[in-house]
Each structure stands twice: as C-alpha cells, then as structure tokens.
Design a binder for these strands. Structure first.
Lengths: 197, 197
DNA sequence: AAATTTTGATATCGATTCGATACGATAAAG
DNA sequence: CTTTATCGTATCGAATCGATATCAAAATTT
C-alpha cells in the first residue's frame, strides 16, 4: 500500500501544479509567467528583513542569477521598485509598486484557492497549516535553506506590550502588522507546530 | 491579519517550490528536469485508465504539446515505454521501463520528503491529506480538470469480495493493488473527505 | 454509408526560463 | 592593506513551454 506521506507529497505536488497553471492563466494577460506572479505574492508578504533578491531566490528554490532576470522584467513592467539598502550597499531591497499592488488586487491570484477553501473550517485549515509547517521546517533542517515562516510564530519574536514586539534575532522593534508578515529567519516555536495552537 | 487559507496556500507553494528544486537536484545527474521526475513519479502511480499523455498533461497542468516533448525525451532515454491502445488506436499508453523503475528506486526522489515526515504521526498526515484532498476536489469543480485521487477512495469503486473490486465508472474488475493507484476519474466518497477516515 | 466533428497525439516555432559561469562592488576578516 | 566572502548582475547555451498546425482514429450526424 502507498505510504500516507507519499500521498500527501502527491497532493502537494498536484496542488502546486494546479496553482502554477492558475498563476499562468492569471499572468498571461499581462505577459507574466507563473514565477513572476509567485514573486509578486512573495513581495506582498515578505517583511523588511526578507525583501531581497537572495531571499526570493531561496523562497523559489532558484538561483539568484535566474531570479535577477525575473526581477528585471518586473522592474521594466513597473510592477516592483528596487532601492539600495542604507547600511549594506550591496543589498538591493524590493517592494511592490502601486501598479504591482493594483495587479494583485485586480487579478487576485489566490482567488481560486480562496473559493476552494471556503467551506473548510478554520480548525481544519489551522491543523493542516501546522502539519505542513512542521514538514517545511524539517526540510529546511536537511537542505539548509531558510523556512520562511510567519514572524509572530517565531522563537525570536517577543511581545513587549500590547503594541510593541521585539525580534531578538535582528535586535529590532517590530510593529504589530510587521509580525504578521513572513521572514526568512523564522524559527517556529514548538508550541506553534502542534495542532493545538 | 493574513487569512489562514492564504497561509496554507503559501505553504503549498513553498513546499512545491522546494520539492521542485529537490527534483531538479535528483534529475541533474541524468540530465532530467523537474518535470521529467514528476512525470516518472506520476507513471509509477497511475492506474491503467490514467497512463496516457493526456492524463499526464492534466496532472501537470501543462498542454499536451508540451508534455509530448517531455515524453519524447523520456522515451529516448529509455526510461518509459509507449505502446498503442488495443481498442482506441489514437491512444498511447505509457509505462515505466525497467530503467525508469531503477531510476526511481535508486534516486528515490521522495526521500527528502520521507525523512521530513518521519516524525509526524499517521493521524496528522491522514488529517492533512483529507483537507488537501478536499481542496483539490473543490479546485477541480471550478476549473474542470480531473482530480486524480486514489482509486479505493472513489465512489465508483465497489468491493465485491475479499480480493475483487469493481469500478462502476469504467465497468471493469479491479485487482487489490490496482485500487491503490491514482485514477483521473476518481470522485472521492464524502466519507473519505472527512478527518475520521 | 458518407461527411462532419471531435479527440488523442505529434511536429514546428518563437519566447522565456533556468543553471553555470564570470564579473563587479561592497563588506568583513586577517 | 590584502585577502576572502557576500550580494547582485550580465552573458550564454540548453531546455521548457504555449500556440498553432497537422495527422490519424473515433464518434456523431446527416
């Protein structure tokens, strides 16, 4: 009999393929490839420690050279903006341009997914998220790359008061909204990996 | 706050990207691209109603022309065998060649995934499978393509006796092992979508 | 039974991705 | 100050991929 983890892998692959096809459809009107849509979605979610070409390359599992080309295209189309980092001048920071944000809100690449998950209870979604996140974290352990988790489920994220959080990894203050973005240095709290969070 | 279904989508995308990179690594020694490894994995699992170029194209979310090229390469490398269907002579059937099977067993493309899921309980895997399968089925409803589920969780799969099953869709007998492969016409039983199966 | 339409698969072509490699600029280490 | 490492970009060749056209077989209609 097929081992259940393999069935799960098959589902992840297939859902990935389907969403890839959906992103292709979404982007085709504007001449964008799936990788471009994925890049825009990433930049929408990445926090200020993770909005670099390098981080995007790790997120997509591609080389930085390849990603550099995709970013060039997005820049030419005016969908993203690139600017130099103040402190480390080798680093390029990325953000969505107003057009990029408009593209996402108009096309809503996740629309199909949202429709498909409408009837699924929040509990079941949360449970699945915790399982997949555990797997992601394990894969990161074995293959070295960052896991890219949501900031507020990270061991380094400390809540100082109602509104103020602090990241003990980067040693910086975080606003509330910032703690809901995804970060390349995220290390999940053990509690956030269980089904009961 | 980010809606949980979006977090789940992000995880599926990211895991898909990572496994894609892993498949690239696996195939690189033999000059195979990720899509080729995915194709071999599909053929390993597809039942005899689903081992055609068309089904593979739907599974991968690619056009049949594109898939035809990939299959040509796999054929040239001797990893798959193609043969004409007896009844419908337009249809080409696909199967792994001995070399193809050897490739999968030697490289074990799912190895990283198996390692990463080792510590996760069978229950949690099953639960996640049921959630993702529900989503997959919903996406199929909206976008038209087949869902590719495991045969024995299908409404058309009837158990006649200890060893004999029957598919009321294709109207053919099925052996036990056959009911554990994936089929393009699979329609999940409602019970198999709940968390309690 | 003949003509039409549909379906499965392949071939060709151009655009684009992607990895490998090399390169330049900045930062860090010694 | 020299060396080394890191981040990003540029170039090139191989390969994917979609669009379109074509071919053959089956299904449908007339």
């Amino acid at each position: 009999m097929l081992k259940n983890p393999i069935v799960l892998l098959d589902l992840v692959n297939r859902l990935g393929n389907l969403m890839r096809a959906e992103f292709r459809r979404i982007g085709s009107e504007d001449g964008l490839q799936p990788v471009h849509v994925l890049s825009l979605l990433f930049l929408e979610q990445a926090n200020r420690f993770s909005n670099t070409p390098q981080a995007l390359a790790e997120y997509l599992g591609l080389t930085k050279g390849t990603v550099s080309q995709s970013l060039l295209l997005l820049d030419r189309r005016g969908l993203i903006e690139r600017y130099q980092d103040e402190i480390d001048k080798r680093v390029v920071r990325l953000r969505l341009s107003p057009q990029g944000e408009a593209f996402l809100s108009e096309t809503n690449p996740a629309g199909l997914w949202q429709t498909a998950t409408r009837e699924i209870s929040a509990n079941r979604v949360r449970y699945s998220v915790s399982v997949l996140r555990t797997i992601l974290y394990e894969i990161q352990n074995f293959s070295g790359g960052p896991a890219f988790g949501v900031c507020n489920t990270c061991v380094y994220c400390q809540r100082k008061s109602q509104r103020i959080h602090h990241c003990t990894w980067f040693g910086e203050r975080l606003s509330g909204p910032e703690t809901r973005k995804i970060c390349r240095e995220q290390v999940p709290k053990t509690g956030s990996l269980s089904a009961s969070d």
